[in-house]
Simulated assay, not measured.
Amino acid sequence: MASGAKKSRLIERIYRQQWEKEPWAEGWLTSIGNAPTAYQSPNGAWCKLCRINLAPHKKDLKRHSETEKHKGKIKTPTQNTLTNYGYVDAVATQKSKILDIKLAVFIAKHAAVTAIDHLSELLKSIDQNKVLFENLKLHRTKCSGIIKYVVTPCILKDLVEAVGNSKFSLIVDESTDISQTQWICFFQQFAQPTVSTYSHINSGQ
């Protein structure tokens, strides 16, 4: 007996590279395979500006390109500067880099990243002789980059070496914030011969 019910059919969406050449996707759209390792998945799209993975659906991708968050990250054409021609600013000395890293680590441990905007201005106002913090130019964007791309890889490397073949406990939790961004947090705890316990927290999208 034939059934009158219609069978639903699941359509698997596949990322198409030709989308990248269309005007609405130029400069920001790429395959999820080109995303950082932590964000990669079997199939999908990646926004290089917003740094989020997206469903490989053309209408959804176009809708994302029209959001205010995405438009705000589109860079305006930059003017030619000396740094574009290989000139290195004397301000970027070794001491200023060390200062930036130390402040970024402090913020990561004790405060929200937005606090660095006020902390930087406060330190420069305290330094009346303009010796220590005269060239301090650390704000939330740069601070986040230092934490994510400089401090975190070093801590992760030390963590892997410290754990070695030791036993450890792992707690995993996930959540979604008000911007619909999904986060997952890993809490790892293990024992070291020289220290009673060692804990490490890592989180990511």
Rank of each mutant, 00 (worst) to 15 (best):
L122T: 15
L123A: 01
L123K: 01
L123Q: 01
L123M: 11
L123P: 02
K124W: 04
K124C: 09
S125W: 08
I126T: 01
D127Q: 11
Q128K: 12
Q128R: 13
N129L: 09
N129W: 11
N129Q: 14
K130P: 01
K130R: 10
V131I: 08
V131N: 06
V131G: 03
V131F: 00
L132A: 12
L132K: 08
F133V: 03
E134L: 10
E134V: 14
N135V: 05
N135I: 06
N135T: 10
L138D: 01
L138H: 03
H139E: 11
H139Q: 14
H139G: 14
H139A: 12
H139C: 13
R140P: 08
T141R: 05
K142S: 12
C143V: 14
C143R: 07
C143Q: 08
C143M: 09
C143H: 09
C143P: 10
S144V: 07
S144Y: 11
G145S: 15
I146T: 07
I146F: 06
I146R: 02
I146Y: 07
I146L: 13
I147R: 02
I147N: 00
I147P: 00
K148E: 11
K148H: 15
K148G: 12
Y149T: 13
Y149A: 13
V150N: 06
V151T: 12
V151L: 10
V151M: 05
T152R: 03
T152Q: 11
T152H: 05
T152D: 02
P153M: 12
P153N: 14
P153C: 12
P153Y: 06
P153T: 14
C154A: 12
I155T: 07
L156Y: 09
L156W: 05
K157P: 00
D158R: 11
L159E: 00
V160N: 07
V160M: 06
E161T: 13
E161M: 10
E161R: 05
A162H: 04
A162W: 00
V163S: 01
G164S: 00
G164V: 02
N165K: 04
N165C: 04
N165T: 14
N165G: 05
N165I: 04
S166F: 15
S166N: 14
S166P: 07
S166I: 13
K167E: 08
K167A: 06
F168K: 05
F168P: 04
S169G: 12
S169P: 02
L170G: 03
L170N: 05
I171N: 02
I171F: 14
I171V: 14
V172L: 10
D173Y: 04
D173T: 04
D173F: 00
D173M: 03
E174Y: 07
E174Q: 15
S175D: 03
T176Y: 02
T176A: 08
T176F: 07
T176M: 01
D177P: 08
D177M: 08
I178S: 14
I178P: 00
I178R: 12
S179P: 02
Q180M: 06
Q180N: 15
Q180I: 13
Q180V: 12
Q180G: 05
Q180F: 12
Q180H: 15
